[in-house]
Each structure stands twice: as C-alpha cells, then as structure tokens.
Design a protein around this nucleic acid. Sequence first.
DNA 1: AGCACATATGATACCGAGTATCAATAATGC
DNA 2: GCATTATTGATACTCGGTATCATATGTGCT
Lengths: 140, 140
Amino acid sequence: MAEEMLDALDRAGVRLTGPRRKLAALIERREGHFTAADLLKDAGRRRMGIGRATVFRLLELLSEQGLVERIDLPDGTHAYIPCEPTHHHHLVCLNCGATTDVDDCGIEAVTREAARRSGFKIEQHRLELFGRCPDCRSAN
Amino acid sequence: MAEEMLDALDRAGVRLTGPRRKLAALIERREGHFTAADLLKDAGRRRMGIGRATVFRLLELLSEQGLVERIDLPDGTHAYIPCEPTHHHHLVCLNCGATTDVDDCGIEAVTREAARRSGFKIEQHRLELFGRCPDCRSAN
DNA sequence: AGCACATATGATACCGAGTATCAATAATGC
DNA sequence: GCATTATTGATACTCGGTATCATATGTGCT
C-alpha cells in the first residue's frame, strides 16, 4: 500500500523524497483512521525528524490523489483514512476505528429522488456510515 | 424561527437571556449556511457587544436541540445551518449556500445493503448532498 | 559520476475555530 | 424585590492547519 502511494506520487510528478517514503510506510502500519498528530507522533518516536508541515503536505498530496480521505467522526473530530481512489463511501467502526470502503449501492436512486423533490441539481454527495465492525461485534 | 429556537431553549431549561435572543434574531436573518465568525461579525456591526464564547455556546445549545447543525462543505470549511430537529439530511447549494432538509428517501435500503456486504452493524449515517438550488440554476 | 536547478524540507511564526477560566452581571423562583 | 445560580464577556489557551523562508535534496542532463 505504501508502494501504491509512492507510485501515485510518482505519477503525479512530485519527488519521491525520504520523508515521503518514511511517512508512507508509517501510514501503511496504521490501522483504522489516524490524525496528522498520530503520524507526527509515530515519526517522532522513531526519531525521524520529520516536520509538522511535511506531514500535512503529504496528506494533502495523497488526498489529491484520492489515496487518503479526511473524514469527520461523529464526535466532531476528524481523521484521515487510506482508501481507494475511486468514488466510494466509508464505513467506520465506532469502536476500533477500522474502516472499509463501500461502493454506491443504490444511492443514485436516493439522490435522484431528493433532486426531484427539491428542484436542486445534485452534483456531489457524501455518505458516511458508522457502526461496529465484525471483530468488535463478536468481541463482546 | 427565532421563536422556535427560543422555545426550544426554554424547553431545554436554560435561560432566555438578552444575548441569546439577539443571536437567535441574527440567525433568523441569515440565509443559507453561516459560520460562528459570520454571526460574530453581524453582532459586531450592530454594536451588540456579544462575546465570542457566547456565540459558540449558543450554537452548541442549538445543535444539542437539533435546531442547528454543523456541516462540512466540500471545500473543507465548515458551517452551521438552521434545520428541523428530526432526522434528515442536507442539500446544500454550492453557489449561494442555501440549504434544505430532505428526509430519508430510501437510504435505509442502502445502509442495509452496505451492512450486509461488510458485516458491520450500522448505527449512524450521514448523507450530504451538494448541488445547485432552483434559483441558482435559473439565474444563469 | 557530477552538477545545476527546482522542489521539498523543517523551523518558526502565524491563523482561525473552538474551549477553559473566572470575576462580574443578569434571569429566574420565591 | 431579592437571593441564587446560570450566563456573560474578556482573556488566555489549545489544536488543526497554513505561510514563510533559508537550507537541503531529488532529478534530469551531460
């Protein structure tokens, strides 16, 4: 997955620098969603001497490439999650933070109906689902 | 609508203070979504001497009562919109910021399908629709 | 391999949204 | 009307993210 990110960065025409490689590896090791601060802490623990700004810059690049997405948790905080660069939605475990992507299973119809009722022309949508992942469901 | 807010605050058992009344009126006058800073500026322009903290405190109260909701715009900023206290979703005009509420027109089925595919137990969902409102569509 | 150049870096300072604190003030119940 | 208690505004703070800028480092070229 770190490969995937580096490939995407390469394709995007930016440089494959040391900090970027290291951060990609750190993101790979993460499970579930994470914050910029999490990454920074990871980097700090390993004495990687990576600057705050660099972390945000990489997250921005990755998010432009669709490999990472910023989501807003129900508690108001926000986090980043690694994901596929195609259009999709997220399912987030409220317990452990694990995420999976789900693709449009019928939202088209919903947006069409909403457009009809409101007179709006709908151009974008965002659907976020929150719940318990299979592991957390069976864990207690 | 300001009435509605004041009623709700009353029902919630908090005091109907001057600043709260004034802010409710300011919210009523707003069209589309607004930020805490917008309200603060409105209040400042009218020399109402309302503190920053008070604005945030009221927005929090109203949001607890479901009369206001904080949404994240596609451009990453976030804003508040007045709305009905029932479960619903938002349709936001990308041009003028106007919003309307739409109720679940078939999302249940979508979440059920996503749950089936993923094994998650879905407990909450959030759907946001962005587009052009009827006015902005005809305006150009 | 070496070099020039543009791009990326980390430090620092900054910004904007939101929260904590706290003494002063005002809404409510009696 | 008055005591009580919630609320207020000022101030300082936190936290996520961005701007700046001199220094360092990938990259394309030879």
